[in-house]
Amino acid sequence: MTVKDIDNIILDLDGTVYVDNKIINKSDIEIRRLAKKGKSIYYLTNNTSKNTKHYIRKLNNLNLPVSTNSIISPIHVMIDWIKKNNIKCVYILGVQELIDELKEKTGVANSSKNPELIIVAFDKELTYQKLETACELINNGVPYYLTHIDIFCPTLKGNMPDCGAIGMLIEKTTGKKSINNFGKPSDLMTDYINKIVDKDHNKIVVGDRIHTDIELGKKIGAETVLVCTGEYQNSKNDNLKINNTQIYNTLTDYLLTI
């Protein structure tokens, strides 16, 4: 298979397509070109501090081709999982727009009174009271899940704490590990992607993180490309070898080969 044969292009967002609201190296131009050529473009993010409507607005504002079906995040995996497991009540450490989307799409209640489980997300509205409530529930035996395992989120101001960091705080405090997570590269995310991305056509995953983007790509049988614009920095990882993964300085550098 050559790069010209790729039909499904699955792109990480933060640190790959953009940082904050700044497009990296004119990647938008190449993404639009490939969409016009009939390539299926998917945006795969672990970021749960924003909901699906936010991403549609943001990508539209950045002049990127986008639809509801082209965005994949742990939120969509959670919606699918909550419905499948008939979950009625959870306690969520997350922003209000995440809570609202889960309620709208699944009917699940967000309450600290007898929740079936706790969901720990990338909560930019986090308070000590939320943490205290979650830890009390966990100490009393309520299981918890992370939306994703990323320790930090890249921003123009530098790296900022993400869901994985919040999860580490809770684990250190309670002595209890999360049951699972809904993001890259979990089996829950893998199963979800395999349901919505055409299995009969070639696909590639492009991202800046080895332990999430590249591992996820390998688990779904995709070609993988690592870019040096986010967590992975080529100059800092000269001795690191990633088997069967191409490395490019930027997403644009890779997309120009298709």
Rank of each mutant, 00 (worst) to 15 (best):
Y248Q: 01
K105V: 01
P65C: 12
N139D: 10
M160S: 09
N244M: 11
Q246T: 10
E101K: 08
K50P: 05
A35M: 01
K50A: 11
F152M: 12
I214A: 01
L131I: 15
G221Q: 08
I72T: 02
T252M: 10
P74F: 05
L240I: 15
D14P: 14
S27I: 08
L226R: 01
L102G: 01
T173Q: 03
R33L: 08
Y232K: 10
L226C: 03
E125V: 09
L156N: 11
T106Y: 11
V95L: 01
T174E: 00
I151T: 03
D191T: 12
F152S: 13
T68F: 15
I56W: 10
L13I: 14
Y91I: 05
K37V: 03
K157H: 02
S178C: 11
I214N: 02
T48S: 14
C153Y: 03
S40I: 06
V17M: 11
G183V: 10
V77H: 05
D28G: 10
P161K: 12
N243R: 15
I6E: 00
K105Y: 06
M1L: 08
S40M: 10
Y232E: 03
V197C: 06
T190H: 03
T2C: 09
I56P: 09
N194A: 06
K172N: 08
I193L: 13
G38K: 11
I23C: 08
N234W: 11
N60Q: 15
N25D: 14
L34F: 08
L188G: 00
I138K: 02
S235P: 00
L156F: 02
L98V: 07
L13F: 05
D12V: 07
V225D: 02
D20S: 12
T52P: 06
I24E: 00
N21T: 13
D187P: 05
K184D: 00
P65Y: 10
G217Y: 04
T173D: 00
